[in-house]
Simulated assay, not measured.
Amino acid sequence: MFLDISQLGVHYAGRSKPAVDGVSFSLQAGEIGVLIGPSGCGKTTLLRAVAGLERANAGSITLARDVVSSATLHVPAESRRIGMVFQDYALFPHLDAAHNVAFGLTHLTHAQREQRVSEVLELVGLGNVHKRFPHELSGGQQQRVALARALAPQPRLLLLDEPFSNLDVDLRERLAHEVRGILKAAGATALFVTHDQLEAFAIGDRIGVMHQGQLHQWDEAYALYHRPATRFVADFIGHGVFAQAHIEQRGDGVVVHTALGDLTDMLECPLPGAYVDGLCDVLLRADDIVHDDSAPVKAQILRKAFRGSEFLYTLKLQTGETVMAHVPSHHNHALGEWIGIRAAVDHVVTFPREPNAAPAAASV
C-alpha cells in the first residue's frame, strides 16, 4: 500500500472525545481516495494529520513504506513531500499564474522551472495563462492553477481539502471529473475531502464515510450506495428511508415482508435469526420504488421536488410510513393525490429495528 493509515487517533486538548478515533484505510499508488461526512465528523482533521499539521495520539500513518506519524514519531510537514490544495486556493495575488506555480520549485534551475511550469499548466488545461494574475482568472481556472502548483514539485501524495466549495454547484461536478482526469494523467496518488456526494462519486476510486471521528465504511461508490455497512452510511448516502420489515424463512429461501409487499433478493442479507423475532428495518431507496397505477399498494403524495427529467416524490403509505420515489417528470401528480407504487429492490439491505424511531429520510 502507498498510503496506509492504521488505527489513527487524534485528540484535541480539552475535548472529551477524539476528533479522529481508530481510523484505518489504505490507498494504492495512483488511487484517488475521498473522505465525506457531515460537518465536524473529523475528515479535515484526518487530512491535516496526514499532511503533518496535526499530531497523532494513537495509531500510525505510513507513506511509501515510511512511517511519518505515530504516538511516538512525527515527521514534520515540510519533510513529507506532500502537496496540498486548499478551499481558498491560497494563490498569491501579486504573482501571475506561472510564478504561482513556480513558487515551490526553487531547487530547480531557471530553465528547469520554466519547463516544469509549462508542463503542469498544460496538464491542467491552462497552457495560455502564464502571465495572467489570479483576479483575471475564473474560479475554475484559479482552482486548476492551485492544482498545478501542488503538482509541480511532484509530491508523493496530494491532499485536497474541499477544493470546489467556493464554486457554483453546476461547476463543481464538472470540475471534479476534470480534476480526476488530471490526477490520473499525472499518475498522482490523492486524498480528497468533501461534503458533497456527487463530487465524491465523480472523483474517487475509494470513498470513506466518516461520522463522529470514526470511519464507517471505505469502499467504492457502488458498494456505499447498494451495500452500506452501517445504518449511518445507508442514511447518509443517497435518498431513501427505513421501513419496518419482518424476515421469515420460507423453505430454502428467505422472504422480507414489508408494507409494499414481499422482497425476495436476500443473497447478501442476514438470516431471520440475526434479529429478534425476525423484526428489522429495510432500506428503501428512491430508485427502489416504482410508480405503477395498477399496483395494489397506494400512497399519498406528501411532497414533490422537480428535478427536470424526474420528480422526487415523498409518499405516505396507508400504514403511516413514508417512502421516496423517482418518477419521470411527465407523471405530474398533485400533492395529496394517491398513486400506485410497488417495490423493485435489487439489493435488500436490512438493519436492526430502532425502537420508537420514525422512518428517517436520507439526504444528498
Rank of each mutant, 00 (worst) to 15 (best):
A223C: 11
H257G: 07
A360K: 14
L108Y: 03
L260G: 04
V34G: 03
A343I: 03
V254M: 04
P359M: 01
N332S: 14
A190M: 01
H107A: 02
A245V: 10
C269T: 15
T44N: 01
Q212G: 14
H333G: 06
T44L: 00
V85R: 00
I339D: 04
R231Y: 09
D265A: 15
G140A: 06
V120D: 02
A29F: 03
D346Y: 15
I237G: 11
I339M: 07
E321K: 10
L91Q: 00
G261M: 03
D21V: 10
A77H: 06
L198A: 15
D4S: 15
L8P: 08
L3D: 02
N57I: 03
V10D: 08
H347R: 15
K304I: 12
G37H: 06
R65M: 12
E321W: 05
T72H: 13
D96F: 00
L137S: 08
P93I: 05
G14Q: 02
E114S: 15
S16L: 13
D66Q: 13
T189Y: 00
L315D: 07
H211D: 13
L95H: 03
Y225D: 05
C280Y: 03
H216S: 11
T322G: 08
L283K: 12
H291E: 10
G213Y: 06
G22C: 06
R48Y: 07
D293I: 12
A305E: 15
L73F: 09
T106H: 08
A51R: 07
P93N: 06
S79P: 10
A259S: 07
D4G: 07
A19P: 13
P18A: 01
V68C: 05
F192S: 03
G308F: 08
V101M: 07
D235V: 12
R149L: 01
R156D: 04
E321Q: 13
R342S: 10
H331D: 06
